[in-house]
Amino acid sequence: MYRVMIVDDEPLIREGLRTLIEWENYGFQVVTVARDGNDALAQYDEAAPDLMIVDIRMPAMDGLQLMEAVRKRNIHTHYLILSGYSDFVYAKRAILSKVDGYILKPIDEEELVQYLELMRTQLDKESVAALTVNHASNIQFFNLDLQFGTEEVTIKSTDLTLYMQKLHYALDIGDKESVSLLIQEIGNDMAMTFRSEQLIKTNYIQLLATITQKLLQAQPMLRSSENKITEWISHIYDQTTFKSMQLLINVQLCKIIDHMGHNHSDTLIKRILDMIQRNYRENLKLESLAEVFNYNSAYLGKLFKNHTGDSFHTYLDKVRINKAKELLAEGLKVYQVAELVGYTNVDYFHTKFKKYVGKAPKAYQNE
Protein backbone atom coordinates (compact mmCIF):
# COMPACT_ATOMS: atom_id res chain seq x y z
CA MET A 1 0.00 0.00 0.00
CA TYR A 2 1.20 3.50 -0.80
CA ARG A 3 1.07 5.90 2.14
CA VAL A 4 -1.03 9.09 2.11
CA MET A 5 -0.97 12.20 4.30
CA ILE A 6 -3.92 14.62 4.16
CA VAL A 7 -3.17 18.25 5.09
CA ASP A 8 -6.03 20.75 5.47
CA ASP A 9 -6.90 23.35 8.08
CA GLU A 10 -10.62 22.48 7.92
CA PRO A 11 -11.47 19.47 10.16
CA LEU A 12 -14.53 18.54 8.10
CA ILE A 13 -12.44 18.41 4.92
CA ARG A 14 -9.71 16.33 6.59
CA GLU A 15 -12.03 13.71 8.00
CA GLY A 16 -14.39 13.80 5.04
CA LEU A 17 -11.58 13.10 2.61
CA ARG A 18 -10.32 10.23 4.78
CA THR A 19 -13.72 8.50 4.50
CA LEU A 20 -14.78 9.64 1.01
CA ILE A 21 -13.51 6.50 -0.73
CA GLU A 22 -12.17 3.02 0.11
CA TRP A 23 -8.51 4.02 -0.26
CA GLU A 24 -7.25 0.42 -0.04
CA ASN A 25 -9.18 -0.47 -3.20
CA TYR A 26 -6.87 1.85 -5.14
CA GLY A 27 -3.63 0.77 -3.49
CA PHE A 28 -3.40 3.58 -0.92
CA GLN A 29 -3.66 3.92 2.85
CA VAL A 30 -4.26 7.18 4.76
CA VAL A 31 -1.61 7.00 7.47
CA THR A 32 -2.17 10.41 9.05
CA VAL A 33 -3.87 13.79 8.73
CA ALA A 34 -2.41 17.20 9.61
CA ARG A 35 -4.16 20.47 10.47
CA ASP A 36 -1.61 22.79 8.79
CA GLY A 37 1.82 22.92 7.19
CA ASN A 38 3.74 22.99 10.45
CA ASP A 39 1.81 19.98 11.78
CA ALA A 40 2.49 18.13 8.52
CA LEU A 41 6.23 18.79 8.73
CA ALA A 42 6.31 17.59 12.34
CA GLN A 43 4.67 14.30 11.32
CA TYR A 44 6.43 13.84 7.99
CA ASP A 45 9.42 11.68 8.95
CA GLU A 46 7.34 9.20 10.93
CA ALA A 47 4.47 9.08 8.43
CA ALA A 48 6.79 8.78 5.40
CA PRO A 49 4.01 9.48 2.87
CA ASP A 50 4.34 8.57 -0.80
CA LEU A 51 1.53 11.00 -1.59
CA MET A 52 0.51 14.22 0.16
CA ILE A 53 -2.92 15.75 -0.48
CA VAL A 54 -2.47 19.38 0.52
CA ASP A 55 -4.77 22.38 0.88
CA ILE A 56 -3.16 25.24 -1.03
CA ARG A 57 -4.32 27.98 1.36
CA MET A 58 -3.57 27.46 5.05
CA PRO A 59 -2.51 29.82 7.84
CA ALA A 60 1.18 30.27 8.73
CA MET A 61 2.48 27.94 6.00
CA ASP A 62 0.49 27.44 2.80
CA GLY A 63 0.49 24.27 0.72
CA LEU A 64 3.14 25.43 -1.72
CA GLN A 65 5.50 26.46 1.07
CA LEU A 66 4.93 23.07 2.69
CA MET A 67 5.89 21.28 -0.53
CA GLU A 68 9.07 23.33 -0.80
CA ALA A 69 10.00 22.36 2.76
CA VAL A 70 9.24 18.68 2.19
CA ARG A 71 11.30 18.57 -1.01
CA LYS A 72 14.35 19.51 1.03
CA ARG A 73 13.85 16.21 2.89
CA ASN A 74 12.61 13.96 0.10
CA ILE A 75 12.39 14.76 -3.61
CA HIS A 76 10.33 11.64 -4.35
CA THR A 77 7.10 12.58 -2.53
CA HIS A 78 4.10 13.23 -4.79
CA TYR A 79 1.45 15.92 -4.30
CA LEU A 80 -2.20 16.58 -5.06
CA ILE A 81 -3.29 20.15 -4.38
CA LEU A 82 -6.72 21.03 -2.95
CA SER A 83 -8.21 24.47 -3.43
CA GLY A 84 -11.49 26.26 -2.88
CA TYR A 85 -10.34 28.84 -5.38
CA SER A 86 -10.18 28.52 -9.14
CA ASP A 87 -8.04 31.62 -9.57
CA PHE A 88 -5.31 31.53 -12.15
CA VAL A 89 -2.51 32.73 -9.86
CA TYR A 90 -2.69 29.75 -7.51
CA ALA A 91 -3.17 27.29 -10.34
CA LYS A 92 -0.09 28.70 -12.10
CA ARG A 93 1.99 28.47 -8.92
CA ALA A 94 0.87 24.87 -8.41
CA ILE A 95 1.86 23.94 -11.96
CA LEU A 96 5.25 25.59 -11.54
CA SER A 97 5.69 23.66 -8.29
CA LYS A 98 5.39 20.40 -10.27
CA VAL A 99 2.42 18.96 -8.44
CA ASP A 100 0.68 15.86 -9.74
CA GLY A 101 -2.85 17.23 -9.72
CA TYR A 102 -5.06 20.19 -8.79
CA ILE A 103 -8.52 19.43 -7.30
CA LEU A 104 -11.17 22.04 -6.60
CA LYS A 105 -13.37 21.89 -3.51
CA PRO A 106 -15.94 20.47 -2.99
CA ILE A 107 -14.00 17.35 -3.85
CA ASP A 108 -15.48 15.15 -6.56
CA GLU A 109 -15.07 11.45 -5.71
CA GLU A 110 -14.68 10.40 -9.35
CA GLU A 111 -12.01 13.01 -10.01
CA LEU A 112 -10.06 11.94 -6.91
CA VAL A 113 -10.20 8.28 -7.97
CA GLN A 114 -8.92 9.17 -11.45
CA TYR A 115 -5.93 10.94 -9.93
CA LEU A 116 -5.23 8.03 -7.57
CA GLU A 117 -5.26 5.55 -10.44
CA LEU A 118 -2.73 7.71 -12.30
CA MET A 119 -0.63 8.07 -9.15
CA ARG A 120 -0.71 4.30 -8.52
CA THR A 121 0.65 3.65 -12.02
CA GLN A 122 3.40 6.24 -11.56
CA LEU A 123 4.39 4.96 -8.10
CA ASP A 124 4.48 1.37 -9.36
CA LYS A 125 6.87 2.42 -12.13
CA GLU A 126 9.09 4.24 -9.64
CA SER A 127 9.13 1.18 -7.35
CA VAL A 128 10.28 -1.07 -10.19
CA ALA A 129 12.92 1.46 -11.21
CA ALA A 130 14.18 1.71 -7.62
CA LEU A 131 14.35 -2.07 -7.40
CA THR A 132 16.46 -2.17 -10.57
CA VAL A 133 18.87 0.44 -9.21
CA ASN A 134 19.08 -1.27 -5.85
CA HIS A 135 19.42 -4.76 -7.30
CA ALA A 136 23.21 -4.65 -7.55
CA SER A 137 23.64 -4.10 -3.81
CA ASN A 138 21.37 -7.06 -3.07
CA ILE A 139 22.57 -9.45 -5.78
CA GLN A 140 24.30 -11.80 -3.36
CA PHE A 141 21.14 -12.28 -1.32
CA PHE A 142 18.71 -12.58 -4.24
CA ASN A 143 21.29 -14.55 -6.26
CA LEU A 144 19.02 -14.36 -9.35
CA ASP A 145 16.52 -16.80 -7.83
CA LEU A 146 14.03 -13.95 -7.38
CA GLN A 147 12.75 -14.74 -10.87
CA PHE A 148 10.82 -17.80 -9.64
CA GLY A 149 10.85 -19.30 -13.12
CA THR A 150 11.73 -18.26 -16.62
CA GLU A 151 9.02 -15.70 -17.30
CA GLU A 152 8.72 -12.29 -15.68
CA VAL A 153 6.63 -12.23 -12.49
CA THR A 154 3.90 -9.61 -12.12
CA ILE A 155 3.74 -8.49 -8.51
CA LYS A 156 0.49 -7.37 -6.95
CA SER A 157 1.07 -4.82 -4.18
CA THR A 158 -0.93 -6.08 -1.20
CA ASP A 159 -1.19 -4.91 2.37
CA LEU A 160 0.87 -7.16 4.65
CA THR A 161 -2.00 -7.16 7.13
CA LEU A 162 -4.14 -8.98 4.58
CA TYR A 163 -1.34 -11.48 3.91
CA MET A 164 -1.04 -12.04 7.65
CA GLN A 165 -4.74 -12.80 7.87
CA LYS A 166 -4.68 -15.23 4.93
CA LEU A 167 -1.59 -17.07 6.15
CA HIS A 168 -3.07 -17.35 9.64
CA TYR A 169 -6.23 -18.87 8.17
CA ALA A 170 -4.31 -21.38 6.05
CA LEU A 171 -2.14 -22.47 8.99
CA ASP A 172 -5.02 -22.71 11.43
CA ILE A 173 -7.04 -24.87 9.06
CA GLY A 174 -3.97 -26.94 8.15
CA ASP A 175 -3.79 -26.42 4.39
CA LYS A 176 -0.14 -26.93 3.38
CA GLU A 177 -0.74 -26.19 -0.29
CA SER A 178 -2.26 -22.81 0.49
CA VAL A 179 0.57 -22.05 2.92
CA SER A 180 3.20 -22.77 0.24
CA LEU A 181 1.44 -20.62 -2.35
CA LEU A 182 1.05 -17.76 0.13
CA ILE A 183 4.73 -17.90 1.13
CA GLN A 184 5.74 -17.54 -2.51
CA GLU A 185 3.28 -14.68 -3.03
CA ILE A 186 4.34 -12.88 0.15
CA GLY A 187 8.01 -13.27 -0.72
CA ASN A 188 7.48 -11.88 -4.22
CA ASP A 189 5.55 -8.92 -2.89
CA MET A 190 8.08 -8.16 -0.16
CA ALA A 191 10.93 -8.26 -2.66
CA MET A 192 9.18 -5.65 -4.79
CA THR A 193 7.94 -3.52 -1.89
CA PHE A 194 10.97 -3.36 0.43
CA ARG A 195 13.77 -3.96 -2.10
CA SER A 196 16.45 -4.81 0.44
CA GLU A 197 17.55 -7.94 2.27
CA GLN A 198 17.33 -6.35 5.71
CA LEU A 199 13.82 -4.93 5.27
CA ILE A 200 12.49 -8.18 3.79
CA LYS A 201 13.85 -10.25 6.67
CA THR A 202 12.65 -7.80 9.33
CA ASN A 203 9.12 -7.61 7.93
CA TYR A 204 8.95 -11.39 7.46
CA ILE A 205 9.97 -11.93 11.09
CA GLN A 206 7.37 -9.45 12.33
CA LEU A 207 4.66 -11.09 10.23
CA LEU A 208 5.56 -14.62 11.33
CA ALA A 209 5.94 -13.66 14.99
CA THR A 210 2.43 -12.18 15.01
CA ILE A 211 0.89 -15.19 13.28
CA THR A 212 2.62 -17.80 15.46
CA GLN A 213 1.58 -15.90 18.59
CA LYS A 214 -2.06 -16.16 17.46
CA LEU A 215 -1.59 -19.88 16.82
CA LEU A 216 0.00 -20.44 20.22
CA GLN A 217 -2.97 -18.79 21.92
CA ALA A 218 -5.54 -20.82 19.96
CA GLN A 219 -3.70 -24.18 19.73
CA PRO A 220 -2.62 -25.44 23.19
CA MET A 221 -0.72 -28.39 21.67
CA LEU A 222 1.77 -25.94 20.14
CA ARG A 223 2.85 -24.33 23.41
CA SER A 224 5.45 -27.00 24.13
CA SER A 225 7.14 -25.98 20.86
CA GLU A 226 7.13 -22.24 21.53
CA ASN A 227 10.91 -22.02 22.04
CA LYS A 228 11.62 -23.99 18.87
CA ILE A 229 9.28 -21.78 16.87
CA THR A 230 10.97 -18.63 18.19
CA GLU A 231 14.39 -20.10 17.40
CA TRP A 232 13.69 -20.96 13.76
CA ILE A 233 12.09 -17.57 13.12
CA SER A 234 15.27 -15.91 14.36
CA HIS A 235 17.26 -18.06 11.88
CA ILE A 236 15.66 -16.09 9.05
CA TYR A 237 18.41 -13.51 9.63
CA ASP A 238 21.05 -16.21 8.97
CA GLN A 239 19.82 -17.10 5.48
CA THR A 240 22.22 -16.03 2.75
CA THR A 241 19.84 -16.23 -0.22
CA PHE A 242 16.24 -15.34 -0.82
CA LYS A 243 15.50 -18.89 -1.97
CA SER A 244 16.91 -20.50 1.19
CA MET A 245 14.89 -18.09 3.34
CA GLN A 246 11.67 -18.98 1.52
CA LEU A 247 12.41 -22.70 1.84
CA LEU A 248 13.11 -22.42 5.59
CA ILE A 249 9.83 -20.60 6.19
CA ASN A 250 7.80 -23.03 4.10
CA VAL A 251 9.28 -26.15 5.71
CA GLN A 252 8.89 -24.86 9.26
CA LEU A 253 5.31 -23.71 8.79
CA CYS A 254 4.39 -27.12 7.38
CA LYS A 255 5.96 -28.69 10.48
CA ILE A 256 3.71 -26.51 12.63
CA ILE A 257 0.68 -27.86 10.74
CA ASP A 258 1.87 -31.43 11.38
CA HIS A 259 2.31 -30.64 15.07
CA MET A 260 -1.25 -29.33 15.33
CA GLY A 261 -2.51 -32.77 14.31
CA HIS A 262 -5.21 -31.80 11.85
CA ASN A 263 -7.59 -34.46 10.60
CA HIS A 264 -7.28 -33.92 6.86
CA SER A 265 -10.26 -36.15 6.13
CA ASP A 266 -12.48 -33.39 7.56
CA THR A 267 -14.36 -31.34 4.99
CA LEU A 268 -13.31 -27.75 4.40
CA ILE A 269 -16.46 -26.45 6.11
CA LYS A 270 -15.77 -28.59 9.20
CA ARG A 271 -12.25 -27.17 9.37
CA ILE A 272 -13.60 -23.63 9.02
CA LEU A 273 -16.08 -24.27 11.85
CA ASP A 274 -13.26 -25.50 14.07
CA MET A 275 -11.24 -22.43 13.18
CA ILE A 276 -14.11 -20.13 14.16
CA GLN A 277 -14.34 -21.84 17.57
CA ARG A 278 -10.63 -21.17 18.13
CA ASN A 279 -10.51 -17.64 16.68
CA TYR A 280 -13.95 -16.08 17.17
CA ARG A 281 -12.37 -12.98 18.74
CA GLU A 282 -10.43 -12.25 15.53
CA ASN A 283 -11.75 -10.17 12.63
CA LEU A 284 -12.65 -13.24 10.55
CA LYS A 285 -13.71 -12.64 6.95
CA LEU A 286 -15.31 -15.09 4.55
CA GLU A 287 -13.82 -13.22 1.59
CA SER A 288 -10.25 -13.80 2.81
CA LEU A 289 -10.95 -17.47 3.52
CA ALA A 290 -12.36 -17.86 0.01
CA GLU A 291 -9.20 -16.36 -1.48
CA VAL A 292 -6.96 -18.66 0.55
CA PHE A 293 -8.74 -21.77 -0.73
CA ASN A 294 -9.38 -20.47 -4.24
CA TYR A 295 -13.17 -20.40 -3.89
CA ASN A 296 -15.63 -17.81 -5.08
CA SER A 297 -16.74 -16.12 -1.84
CA ALA A 298 -20.44 -16.33 -2.76
CA TYR A 299 -20.09 -20.05 -3.49
CA LEU A 300 -18.20 -20.71 -0.24
CA GLY A 301 -20.85 -18.74 1.61
CA LYS A 302 -23.56 -20.92 0.06
CA LEU A 303 -21.71 -24.11 1.04
CA PHE A 304 -21.34 -22.77 4.58
CA LYS A 305 -25.04 -21.92 4.90
CA ASN A 306 -26.11 -25.28 3.46
CA HIS A 307 -23.98 -27.01 6.11
CA THR A 308 -24.85 -24.85 9.14
CA GLY A 309 -28.18 -23.23 8.29
CA ASP A 310 -26.62 -19.80 8.94
CA SER A 311 -24.59 -17.34 6.95
CA PHE A 312 -20.91 -17.09 7.90
CA HIS A 313 -21.39 -13.80 9.77
CA THR A 314 -24.51 -14.99 11.60
CA TYR A 315 -22.74 -18.17 12.69
CA LEU A 316 -19.75 -16.15 13.91
CA ASP A 317 -22.07 -13.80 15.82
CA LYS A 318 -23.79 -16.75 17.52
CA VAL A 319 -20.46 -18.27 18.60
CA ARG A 320 -19.38 -14.91 20.00
CA ILE A 321 -22.66 -14.34 21.84
CA ASN A 322 -22.61 -17.82 23.40
CA LYS A 323 -19.09 -17.15 24.66
CA ALA A 324 -20.21 -13.72 25.90
CA LYS A 325 -22.96 -15.37 27.98
CA GLU A 326 -20.32 -17.56 29.67
CA LEU A 327 -18.10 -14.56 30.44
CA LEU A 328 -21.00 -12.48 31.77
CA ALA A 329 -21.87 -15.36 34.09
CA GLU A 330 -18.31 -15.15 35.43
CA GLY A 331 -18.96 -11.54 36.46
CA LEU A 332 -16.91 -9.64 33.87
CA LYS A 333 -17.98 -6.13 32.92
CA VAL A 334 -19.94 -5.71 29.70
CA TYR A 335 -17.23 -3.68 27.91
CA GLN A 336 -14.63 -6.31 28.86
CA VAL A 337 -16.79 -9.12 27.49
CA ALA A 338 -17.41 -7.22 24.24
CA GLU A 339 -13.69 -6.87 23.64
CA LEU A 340 -12.89 -10.46 24.62
CA VAL A 341 -15.36 -11.93 22.13
CA GLY A 342 -14.32 -9.73 19.21
CA TYR A 343 -16.55 -6.63 19.26
CA THR A 344 -14.57 -3.39 19.35
CA ASN A 345 -17.74 -1.27 19.67
CA VAL A 346 -19.71 -1.84 22.89
CA ASP A 347 -22.93 -0.39 21.44
CA TYR A 348 -22.71 -2.81 18.52
CA PHE A 349 -22.19 -5.66 21.00
CA HIS A 350 -25.33 -4.56 22.87
CA THR A 351 -27.32 -4.65 19.64
CA LYS A 352 -26.07 -8.12 18.67
CA PHE A 353 -26.55 -9.56 22.16
CA LYS A 354 -30.14 -8.31 22.37
CA LYS A 355 -30.84 -9.65 18.88
CA TYR A 356 -29.80 -13.21 19.75
CA VAL A 357 -30.60 -13.38 23.48
CA GLY A 358 -33.66 -11.14 23.65
CA LYS A 359 -32.33 -8.87 26.40
CA ALA A 360 -29.43 -6.53 27.10
CA PRO A 361 -26.13 -7.99 28.43
CA LYS A 362 -26.52 -6.34 31.84
CA ALA A 363 -30.08 -7.60 32.22
CA TYR A 364 -28.90 -11.11 31.34
CA GLN A 365 -26.07 -10.86 33.86
CA ASN A 366 -28.38 -9.68 36.65
CA GLU A 367 -30.77 -12.63 36.31
Rank of each mutant, 00 (worst) to 15 (best):
residue 94 A to W: 03
residue 290 A to D: 07
residue 67 M to W: 02
residue 38 N to S: 14
residue 42 A to S: 15
residue 214 K to G: 10
residue 328 L to Y: 01
residue 195 R to A: 11
residue 208 L to H: 04
residue 338 A to D: 05
residue 284 L to I: 10
residue 130 A to C: 11
residue 12 L to P: 07
residue 73 R to H: 01
residue 306 N to K: 10
residue 156 K to P: 11
residue 180 S to N: 12
residue 311 S to W: 01
residue 168 H to M: 00
residue 191 A to E: 03
residue 240 T to Y: 13
residue 5 M to I: 02
residue 146 L to N: 15
residue 241 T to N: 09
residue 219 Q to T: 09
residue 129 A to E: 10
residue 116 L to T: 00
residue 213 Q to M: 13
residue 10 E to V: 09
residue 274 D to F: 06
residue 47 A to K: 09
residue 310 D to F: 15
residue 320 R to Q: 07
residue 286 L to A: 02
residue 52 M to I: 11
residue 154 T to N: 13
residue 352 K to I: 09
residue 62 D to Y: 07
residue 166 K to N: 08
residue 82 L to S: 01
residue 339 E to S: 14
residue 97 S to H: 05
residue 293 F to R: 05
residue 307 H to P: 12
residue 174 G to H: 01
residue 363 A to E: 15
residue 216 L to W: 10
residue 10 E to R: 13
residue 105 K to Q: 00
residue 130 A to N: 14
residue 161 T to C: 09
residue 81 I to P: 11
residue 173 I to M: 07
residue 273 L to V: 09
residue 120 R to A: 04
residue 209 A to F: 11
residue 184 Q to W: 08
residue 123 L to D: 00
residue 27 G to S: 01
residue 234 S to D: 12
residue 50 D to G: 09
residue 22 E to N: 13
residue 120 R to H: 11
residue 174 G to K: 04
residue 137 S to M: 13
residue 334 V to Y: 01
residue 6 I to E: 01
residue 223 R to D: 03
residue 79 Y to M: 00
residue 291 E to C: 02
residue 360 A to T: 13
residue 93 R to S: 12
residue 202 T to G: 08
residue 38 N to D: 14
residue 306 N to G: 05
residue 125 K to S: 15
residue 84 G to V: 09
residue 318 K to L: 00
residue 168 H to G: 07
residue 84 G to C: 05
residue 189 D to G: 15
residue 254 C to E: 12
residue 145 D to K: 13
residue 189 D to R: 11
residue 253 L to A: 00
residue 358 G to W: 00
residue 38 N to P: 03
residue 259 H to E: 05
residue 146 L to R: 12
residue 82 L to V: 04
residue 14 R to G: 08
residue 70 V to E: 08
residue 36 D to F: 00
residue 121 T to D: 13
residue 28 F to T: 03
residue 12 L to R: 14
residue 24 E to H: 11
residue 38 N to Y: 13
residue 141 F to P: 04
residue 157 S to F: 14
residue 31 V to F: 14
residue 99 V to K: 04
residue 182 L to W: 02
residue 76 H to R: 12
residue 197 E to K: 15
residue 67 M to T: 03
residue 171 L to N: 01
residue 166 K to W: 06
residue 194 F to G: 00
residue 351 T to P: 08
residue 178 S to Q: 02
residue 323 K to W: 09
residue 14 R to F: 04
residue 86 S to G: 15
residue 11 P to R: 01
residue 124 D to S: 12
residue 304 F to N: 08
residue 242 F to W: 13
residue 232 W to K: 09
residue 64 L to S: 03
residue 74 N to A: 15
residue 243 K to I: 05
residue 237 Y to N: 13
residue 65 Q to D: 08
residue 82 L to E: 06
residue 164 M to S: 13
residue 294 N to S: 14
residue 35 R to T: 05
